[in-house]
Design a binder for these strands. Sequence first.
DNA 1: TACATAGATAGATGGCCGTCGATTTGGAGC
DNA 2: GCTCCAAATCGACGGCCATCTATCTATGTA
Lengths: 117, 117
Amino acid sequence: MAVDLELAPKQKRPAGEPCCEPVVYPDIQRQQAERMAAVAKALGEPIRLQLVDVLRKHAGKVCVCELVPLFDLSQPTVSHHLKVLRDAGIVDSERRGLWAFYYVIPETLKELSAWLK
Amino acid sequence: MAVDLELAPKQKRPAGEPCCEPVVYPDIQRQQAERMAAVAKALGEPIRLQLVDVLRKHAGKVCVCELVPLFDLSQPTVSHHLKVLRDAGIVDSERRGLWAFYYVIPETLKELSAWLK
DNA sequence: TACATAGATAGATGGCCGTCGATTTGGAGC
DNA sequence: GCTCCAAATCGACGGCCATCTATCTATGTA
């Protein structure tokens, strides 16, 4: 059984002892994982990922009034999801008169993409 | 106001009419977005992303009994999170005697990484 | 001024999900 | 058979979150 390269309990140990040496997991990695998890969480809702998908398909910025009819959801619900995406730093918005235009911030997605790779 | 390249309401329209032409959003893209959202959702919990982080730091496979003491969580909770990751196709496991060894399936992460890029 | 419209916010509701302790499963060894 | 142990599953609880309707804010127009 080739467990040499693997992280396995080191040996048989007396009952009552902890099962194995704790693996080190540095705080820096922990913090970055938490940051990435926050971005992933925002993308974890199908509607939000679809919003991102639509937004980045357009070079410019997309009016909210174009986004709402794409989904079988109320306007406040879409507005809520856009806010979640904005709070996660995935999109940003810009107001022009009555209209609000949303656009993707590519760096945030790139950051997660790089972490996953 | 330069909205030429942007997705903006096309014109003033009579009251009562829908606010704008619906943007086309093909079902294929919708389906893939939903698949990617499922993966992102599984990664959206800090503990789960940390589990993935630990697993991929090791070339081989990691025993559950090594993972549990890394977090301030009960054994059933860690087991639950591992199951969520496995159901999403992000990790898989292999039993050897009393121990269970988990490992990352790199393709799934690559797929999401590519989608984000 | 008043009115209409786009989008954001507030508050309520229902369901999902993370967590736990208790129990079960299944393999190892006696 | 029996016991011990690692891991998974069960059942319950509590909090978070997606959704809605209703309302508010802000801007444009008459």
